[in-house]
Design a protein around this nucleic acid. Structure first.
Lengths: 182, 182
DNA sequence: TGGGTTGGCATACCGATGGTATGTGAAAGC
DNA sequence: GCTTTCACATACCATCGGTATGCCAACCCA
């Protein structure tokens, strides 16, 4: 899985062949197919691992951001962007993921990990009356905005990444203000 | 290209084989490779066509929305969502596009079409002093939010699509309010 | 302690796929 | 009227994902 993850992250899913992976891992295709049913299943396992890693970082950041739900969400959003601003994450999780697994299947992983915390935070804020509007739509829009911002930063030249990330967080914060109950 | 577009839209890029396409089109692989250098190049041509179609709808909606730049942008956003809430558009343009061409190459098409108008509208509003914040970051976040909303609506059961679309537009409007100069 | 079963691979092989090299007839140019 | 170019068709190839089978050590059970 480590070999696969590395190849998928750098060359992408389609351009990575099983012979390459098993050669890196110093096993044979027989061994691979003993553990995984298909190339897509191997990718799914790798994706799941990446998702869990990002989700863990988001949770850690949110928990150490105090007790205010609003601050927790903002901290979680920033942590998500920081974790995803890494081609090995964005390529697997955000670009190839939907194409390989299909969007709905990919979304299940997204919902079960990083997007879940976002959804819970939004639902919590809506319940507190802090946030207005449709919870699902808000979650989707914010998730999409953050995913795109993550790729945007990840694909930018190294020296622009930090600046892009800060600009994204600032804009995101402003956008969230618009959703706040006035 | 019509045959390819249909197959790409329904089965996806990876699951569509060239023999299928040329059989549909009642030509041979030789004919295909006479016009396109590779499968990816054929996809690129199809994608470009789809992008232009969506962009045309966005422009038409924006132009018939009066002279206020703010209203024009909102109308354009709604038109984009309506045009993209169609699996044949979202699958090619939003899901397979980035994975097949690579994100940066895909973004060039996005920038040259639908996202361009969004960017111009945002730049115009920023110049008028109506909108604050980083123009690039705002464009990327909004573009990402709308792309995700489009897929969200496209993949939803038919009876939920209109409702999702309305909710997305309403939330988007609220988010834009947050970016407005107060 | 030994025969049978299972887990964990390796080897050999297969059909299909994207891509290429070559052939061919009609139209266009000189 | 000769030649070149265009627009394909045909035949072929390397590689890929996937499968069927072989093999051997570990483990169970008598």
């Amino acid at each position: 899985m480590a070999s696969a993850s590395r190849r998928f992250a750098t060359a992408g899913y389609a351009a990575t062949s099983l012979p390459e992976i098993v050669s890196d891992a110093e096993v044979t295709k027989g061994a691979l197919y003993h553990h995984f049913g298909s190339k897509a299943e191997l990718f799914e396992a790798v994706l799941s691992e990446v998702q869990e890693g990002v989700a863990a970082q988001v949770v850690r950041a949110a928990e150490s951001a105090g007790s205010d739900a609003w601050d927790q969400m903002l901290a979680g959003c920033r942590a998500f962007l920081e974790a995803s601003t890494d081609t090995s994450v964005s390529r697997i999780m955000l670009i190839d993921g939907p194409a390989v697994l299909g969007w709905s299947r990919w979304r299940r992983y997204d919902d079960a990990n990083s997007a879940q915390h976002l959804g819970e935070a939004i639902a919590e804020l809506a319940a507190q009356g802090v946030l207005t509007g449709d919870v699902d739509a808000t979650t989707r829009l914010l998730s999409g905005a953050m995913n795109e911002a993550a790729i945007w930063s990840a694909e930018a030249p190294a020296q622009d990444r930090a600046r892009n990330l800060d600009a994204a967080v600032a804009t995101l914060t402003a956008m969230l203000e618009g959703l706040r109950t006035r």
